[in-house]
Computed example of a mutant assay.
Amino acid sequence: MDHESRIHIGFLIFEGFPMACLTSMIEPLRAANEIANQPAFAWTLIGEKKGRVMSSAQVAFEATQSLAEANDLDSLFLLSSPTERFADAQKSPATLRSLARHGVTLGSISGGVFPLVRAGIVHRQPVSVHWCYEAAFRAEFPDVDARSDVIVASARLQTVSGAAAAFDLALRLVEGQLGRETAHEVACWFQHPSMRGEGVRQKVPVAQAPHTGDDLPDLVLRAVDIFASRISDAVTVAEVARKTGVTPRQVERAFKAATGQSPTHYYRAMRMKAARQLVIYSGDAIADIAAAVGYGSSVPLVSHYKAAFGVTPQQDRRRANQFRVDANKPVPSI
């Protein structure tokens, strides 16, 4: 395979980027090169500036090229935590937009969707947002079409929710470049059971239960969907019962049997998780966060938050900020 037909992928890494997301995409591409015995894929680690970049796992990587020097790329993926921003808020986003205009496919993995959107790359296109970041993302970008699919991709914009989804996207690239048989062999190398595509929803943990939702009864799943759509506009169990065509008692019994808790407590846990995203990944005032998750004031929010996480929102935010600053450690990312 000649240089012209090779696919060259850049990974723009920020401090605290999720290491698994990077390796989950590079390793299948490396394996594909070995299996095909040809350099079908090449990759470059890029930073705003050249040099050492610390990952979320406290393993350092070397950005061998600066963003300003990025060239000869077919695709460029952003990897970061949700809180990271460009050091040069004018020049770096402009460079990304210039790359896009010159035919480079841009994308993001996990929290990298935040700087991607901040750069003005995404307009009316949908993007994949990890469920862990959904509340913070919607608060910052209410007009962006955030999807829960593991992969949301077009010819010019490719976004994936996390590390496993990055592996799936890499397999798609291998299939497109080297064929289905090679992609299947790569998947088997890593014991990756199947290649997920667009339209596949993320696995989301059920609050305080060892499930991802697949084995929940239909009534509970429908109620959870209603709860998820009404985080900021609180809904009662009676309303959920009316919408699902059953009695409140049936909803109560179904939740207790499936999750071990009442629908009210389950719903509160969902709202607390959304609140914690906003506490850690946004700078919003606690009163605004309370309103965003359906509370009339911050007093009950603080009480429920402390019961759920053992600290107040203010204490949790101070802890997160201290973790970011001390030894330049990032808040954990997905």
Results as ranks from 00 to 15, higher is better:
137 F>H: 08
241 A>R: 01
293 V>Q: 04
82 P>A: 15
72 D>Y: 01
268 R>F: 06
325 V>G: 01
276 R>D: 05
244 T>E: 03
209 A>T: 06
293 V>F: 13
37 N>M: 11
263 P>V: 03
33 N>I: 01
228 A>E: 04
262 S>P: 12
16 G>H: 03
129 V>K: 11
258 A>T: 07
205 P>H: 05
160 V>Y: 12
220 V>N: 02
325 V>R: 02
96 L>V: 03
256 K>P: 01
69 E>F: 01
277 Q>W: 14
302 V>D: 02
102 H>N: 12
116 L>R: 01
324 R>N: 12
124 R>L: 11
309 F>T: 13
142 P>Y: 14
51 G>T: 09
175 E>P: 10
265 H>L: 15
3 H>G: 06
167 F>S: 01
192 H>M: 09
326 D>A: 12
311 V>S: 10
97 R>N: 13
273 K>G: 14
319 R>H: 07
142 P>H: 11
1 M>G: 11
260 G>Q: 08
49 K>A: 11
151 I>F: 13
307 A>Y: 02
117 V>D: 03
182 T>A: 10
232 S>D: 10
31 A>I: 06
122 V>E: 01
270 M>F: 04
319 R>T: 04
67 L>P: 09
113 V>N: 02
189 W>I: 15
62 E>C: 12
6 R>K: 02
182 T>I: 15
73 L>Q: 00
81 S>G: 15
2 D>T: 06
162 G>A: 15
58 Q>C: 11
126 P>S: 14
19 M>D: 13
165 A>I: 08
161 S>Q: 06
147 R>Y: 03
